[in-house]
């Protein structure tokens, strides 16, 4: 533990933010990215929830990794994740009821989020708790960034507001501007996700 920020640990944290992003590079967790991003606020809350759950699930599994029998490891992982999801869900209901209603089943469905299972299988089962924690935070934030970008575009163009506050001035509506109804549909978030992937590859291929 002497090297808290060794290059490996740093890489575990920073890679998922850009070059190894779970959504735009590994294309995981797309379903929830489509479902919760029509507004910015639920997108942020969802991103943070996944970050917290991934980080702590990673830590717990990493601590247990030597005692978990190999043949039932998926079940153990699911139990840990389910417990964490329940905690987060209850916290949301207590402190952010409106958002939790908006997110509805998608908080519960974090259990089945591919990013979580992927990190537990691929990272936490092989690495120590601190590195796993950083990896979980990194992947959660990498997921959250994309959700925020998609949610930003969709809420701005689809509802003319950000975080529920109207951004597009009334004067523009009087001139004949209209909100783009397609932005509020999941189909459009798939296209925006595609654009993000396109931009990401275009930038990284040049390097």
């Amino acid at each position: 533990m002497g090297k808290l920020f060794s290059p490996e640990n740093k890489a575990a944290f920073t890679n998922p933010l850009n070059l190894d992003n779970p959504v735009v590079v590994q294309v995981l967790g797309i379903c929830s990215a489509l479902a919760v991003t029509s507004q910015l606020e639920p997108a942020i809350v969802m991103g943070l929830s996944v970050t917290v759950i991934t980080a702590f699930a990673n830590v717990i599994i990493s601590l247990l990794r030597k005692t978990i029998p190999n043949r039932i490891r998926i079940i153990v992982q699911l139990v840990v994740v389910a417990a964490l999801v329940t905690i987060v869900s209850e916290v949301l209901k207590a402190f952010a009821y409106d958002v939790s209603v908006q997110l509805s089943v998608y908080v519960g469905l974090i259990i089945t989020n591919c990013i979580l299972m992927g990190r537990l299988e691929a990272f936490a089962m092989q690495n120590g708790p601190w590195a796993s924690f950083l990896d979980g935070i990194g992947n959660g934030l990498g997921y959250a960034i994309i959700l925020v970008i998609v949610g930003f575009v969709r809420e701005l163009l689809g509802s003319g507001s950000l975080l529920g506050i109207q951004i597009v001035p009334d004067a523009l509506y009087d001139l004949g501007y209209m909100n783009n109804g397609m932005m509020t549909m999941p189909a459009m978030s798939l296209i925006i996700c595609g654009c993000v992937i396109w931009a990401h590859r275009a930038i990284n291929d040049k390097k």
Partner: peptide, 10 residues
């Protein structure tokens, strides 16, 4: 189709 779904009132 884009017009139809994005700007139904128009």
């Amino acid at each position: 189709a884009f017009l139809f779904f994005a700007y139904p009132t128009a």
